[in-house]
Design a protein around this nucleic acid. Structure first.
Lengths: 136, 136
DNA sequence: ATTCTTGCAAATCATTTGCACTTTA
DNA sequence: TAAAGTGCAAATGATTTGCAAGAAT
């Protein structure tokens, strides 16, 4: 995988110091961190960092499809570097969030996992909007 | 589909007036309403209804798997009466949320729809917790 | 110098909590 | 009259917004 600076530039995003560090954090922490975790993970090395910048940067990365948001926690959004298709398994007992492969049919969860509910959602353009191709 | 009172009783939930009306609202409004929409849809006929009761009741219905929560909006949770498996398609342009059938492989979105991203999540027990079978 | 980026503080808003009141068996 | 259910008001906490200061070209 390319380095953070290259990924930003290839997507037309000016690679500021904060943006590089936030994307690097996501690339090296594949634990679906929250905004707070990204912030806390960087604040020691970047004492001037603000949460607003973390929010702004994540929104920017999502708009450019470099990062996906995972809406599985009721209370806060998790973030994930966009890569191969994978699903997420959330344990309702311990709260762990585990990736699983989506390139098999049916998508296979690891051995020993008990699926209680399946949730699928797509995002894109509906039939009314796909003709216009314009957003907002 | 059974009526609301029957569904509640079959699941061991005491069918209070508020619970019946809230479940009836969900059964007759298959538009993935928010808490606020459920509340606003009932407040005229049940002037004493409180949002806390709507929250409490929805949580209870979810615990008994009568209702599913849809985590697709960033800001608020949507609710759906539990039925046949179906996925949700959110249009990033107009914001519409459309159901689609999951019982085909691959899951087919309606004609004219453009899928930009696929999100799948399962909930259940991970391998560490499935042996214990205990929650919380 | 103008535009982009950052960051603080305040505002917003969905959801939760504490507790008191009401209903039901 | 206990126990369960309801509801008000306040608290919580993630996210957004307005705006001023800083950095870059």
């Amino acid at each position: 995988m390319k380095n953070a600076t290259t990924m930003l530039m290839e997507n037309g995003i000016k690679p500021s110091y904060q943006r590089i560090r936030i994307l690097e954090y996501l690339m090296s922490h594949r634990t679906h961190p929250t905004v707070a975790e990204v912030y806390n993970g960087l604040i020691d090395e970047i004492p001037t960092l603000s949460k607003t910048t973390v929010y702004n940067t994540l929104k920017l990365l999502i708009e450019h499809q470099i990062v996906n948001e995972i809406l599985i926690e009721e209370k806060e959004v998790l973030y994930d570097v966009a890569e191969e298709d994978h699903g997420h398994f959330k344990c309702v007992s311990c709260g762990d969030l585990i990736d699983f492969n989506l390139n098999e049919a049916p998508p296979a969860v690891p051995t020993g996992f008990v699926v209680q509910s399946v949730h699928v959602y797509y995002k894109g353009l509906c039939n009314k909007c796909s003709g216009k191709q314009h957003k907002e």
